[in-house]
């Protein structure tokens, strides 16, 4: 249920922070992302991009996790932290 105003995580620029509102990924990918802490309500911050621009490192629940663009696209966030 993508709520209005939500954007896929990979569109956020480095330095931006947002709140996870939903997940479009399915299957094992969805589970893995949930395990890592990308749960609704969690605050995620874009830390930095790799030298080639992809993957990107995200700070979530106290750890830093790198995700590729297409994997981060499955996470919906809203910028009202």
């Amino acid at each position: 249920m993508p709520s209005p105003g939500s954007v896929p995580l990979h569109l956020l620029p480095p330095g931006a922070a947002a709140k996870v509102v939903g997940m479009e990924a399915g299957g094992p990918k969805r589970r893995r992302l949930l395990d890592l802490g990308f749960v609704p309500g969690a605050v995620v911050e874009v830390v930095r991009r790799s030298p080639f621009g992809d993957p990107t490192a995200y700070a979530i629940k106290g750890s830093v996790i790198a995700l590729r663009r297409e994997d981060a696209a499955g996470i919906l966030v809203r910028g009202d932290v």
Binding site: P28, R32, L36, P55, S63, V64, I65, A66, D71
Partner: peptide, 8 residues
């Protein structure tokens, strides 16, 4: 799917 933790 690619996930990589960057520890401190």
């Amino acid at each position: 799917f690619f996930v990589l933790e960057l520890p401190p």
